[in-house]
């Protein structure tokens, strides 16, 4: 039992990272209907910027985190303005291909930085090595930090959407762009804002992942797990993305421990198949009843 709980908790912490990436993914999808395949690469850039500031430049942890998160957010906003703004009105498939291309470019750019491409690296924090005990369960402090940080960010987001004018404008745009326009919302700034926020969240995900897993130029593939997480949650639901991500992490962790080797790699996709067979609209998705 202790062993099981131990696995569940370590699954929750990696799942939190998936959840954050999925949150960024769904945020962009809701605001702009763009399926963003470059989300994993944004996380990778965020993690490496953190690595550069913390390990190479030896900046204080908090300062390095702030710079890395802001820089990734600005990069994401810039990508939206330069590459996706001109695509407004083009077929969804064309836009998707643009994001795949951007992902490749970001990975190639990271490979050109000698300090980044040479090896797999890890960021050590003052927490690394210490543990948190909950009764018989032992959690590494880094894993616990991931869970706490995710909870804080999710709360912040909830408040942002519930209380602020910008949060409300984003919700309005995601439900009806036309109506939002005539309520005075600048729908274009909302797209940029969605990318900005998604960039910031994925950078946080990358930074949280860095102490618990190795970071490397191809870690963006991990970001693709955001897509099954989002699908499980219902694809356009923010709470769904969080639950989907955590569920995914737990399943992977349990599959890795109890099932033969190989299952943990495909656990995400088995979970997607199971969820979609039982609830095709996803856990938090809404069924669209077409009136005939």
């Amino acid at each position: 039992m202790v062993q099981f709980l131990q696995q569940v908790i370590s699954g929750v912490s990696i799942g939190c990272v998936y959840a954050l990436i999925a949150l960024g993914f769904v945020l962009i999808y809701k605001a702009t209907e763009t399926v963003n395949f470059a989300i994993g690469e944004l996380m990778m850039i965020g993690a490496f910027l953190g690595f550069t500031f913390i390990v190479i430049w030896s900046l204080p942890l908090w300062l390095a985190a702030i710079i890395a998160i802001s820089a990734t957010a600005l990069l994401a906003a810039m990508l939206e303005r330069v590459f996706l703004r001109p695509m407004v009105g083009e077929p969804a498939f064309a836009i998707l291909v643009v994001t795949i291309g951007l992902g490749f470019c970001l990975r190639a750019a990271a490979l050109m930085v000698p300090e980044w491409s040479s090896e797999t690296v890890r960021i050590f924090t003052p927490l690394s090595g210490s543990v948190v005990r909950l009764g018989p369960i032992v959690i590494s402090a880094d894993h616990a930090a991931v869970i706490v940080a995710t909870a804080l960010i999710v709360t912040g987001f909830f408040v942002f959407f519930k209380r602020t004018r910008m949060g409300l404008a984003m919700q309005a745009v995601s439900q009806s762009q036309l109506a939002a326009t005539y309520m005075g919302v600048r729908t274009r700034s909302v797209s940029t804002l969605a990318w900005l926020l998604a960039g910031a969240i994925t950078a946080v995900a990358g930074l949280l992942l860095a102490p618990i897993a190795f970071i490397h130029v191809n870690m963006g593939v991990l970001g693709l797990k955001a897509i099954p997480a989002a699908i499980i949650g219902g694809f356009s639901s923010l709470p769904g993305a969080i639950v989907g991500g955590i569920l995914l992490g737990v399943c992977e962790s349990l599959a890795g421990f109890y099932l033969p080797a190989g299952f943990s790699e495909v656990a995400a996709y088995i979970l997607v198949l199971v969820v979609l067979t039982i609830r095709p609209e996803g856990l938090f998705g809404e069924t669209i009843h077409k009136r005939v």
Binding site: G156, R163, T164, R165, Q171, Q175, S176, M183, V185
Partner: peptide, 26 residues
């Protein structure tokens, strides 16, 4: 805004005129 209530739909019209800043709102 189909997924929102009547009140919330009407409130969108008001909130656009809100003068307070992000931090104060949060």
């Amino acid at each position: 805004f189909d997924h929102a209530s009547v009140i919330d739909n009407l409130l969108v019209g008001c909130h656009i005129r809100s003068r307070t800043n992000l931090l104060a709102d949060m």
